[in-house]
């Protein structure tokens, strides 16, 4: 099949992400990867839960002393909204409206970038205000590994979207790049899934007790 064939909204297939064999394989392989990611994050969550508030002496700050609800709330809203904007992008992808898809993905990237800025501010704040660093305690190591790993996923997701947008800026939407955009948006949703557990288990439950 010619992957670079030009399509219009009327000739565009119903599931462009799964029309080609390559698209089908990407789809399946990516869900296998997400299953693996689930296990990876579970091991980090388990480590965090076991080492939460385990500090060498009582002059170290604990979770409930440091976390602030407004910051976590803003970050949650940014990431949740960016998940919706990437849904909008995929809606336009299925309708073969390339320009609108690009616009919504750009908004997604900007929201993700906002999230990342808040996270950098947050880590910087903990290090300088509370001397809560990666090496200060077992709690610090577990916290930065878990939340930092999620932050690294956000960075990868942003880079992925940006590269796809730049590389395909002039190509237009076809069966070659539709699965690529689709899989990247699945990855972005998964990042939000992990964040739901982070804000619940680390921040909200951390502040309750």
């Amino acid at each position: 099949m010619d992957m670079n064939k030009k399509y219009t909204a009327r000739t565009w297939p119903e599931s462009p992400e799964k029309t080609t064999l390559e698209g089908k394989n990407k789809f399946l392989g990516f869900w296998l990867f997400l299953g693996g990611e689930t296990v990876l994050f579970a091991s980090l969550f388990a480590t965090y839960l076991a080492l939460k508030d385990k500090v060498p002496s009582n002059d170290h700050y604990l979770a409930a002393d440091m976390f602030e609800l407004p910051l976590v709330f803003i970050m949650t809203m940014l990431l949740l909204t960016s998940s919706l904007t990437s849904v909008y992008a995929m809606y336009h992808m299925k309708n073969h409206n390339y320009q609108k898809m690009q616009t919504w993905l750009l908004i997604t990237v900007l929201l993700g970038l906002g999230f990342l800025c808040f996270e950098i501010y947050e880590f910087n704040h903990y290090v300088h205000e509370f001397h809560h660093t990666f090496t200060s305690s077992a709690f610090g190591s577990a916290f930065y590994t878990l939340v930092g790993f999620h932050g690294a996923h956000v960075v990868v997701g942003l880079g992925w979207f940006t590269l796809l947008l730049v590389r395909n800026a002039k190509r237009g939407l076809n069966l070659y790049n539709a699965p690529k955009f689709f899989v990247a948006s699945l990855y972005w949703h998964f990042i939000d899934v992990v964040w739901v557990f982070i804000f619940t288990v680390v921040y909200l439950m951390g502040m309750v007790g």
Partner: peptide, 21 residues
């Protein structure tokens, strides 16, 4: 198949967290 992959991962995730806790 996607559900099979994800729920297999979720099962291992659950057992891991339960063990550590």
């Amino acid at each position: 198949t996607a559900a099979l992959f994800l729920y297999s991962g979720a099962l291992i995730a659950f057992v891991t967290i339960l063990t550590f806790l």
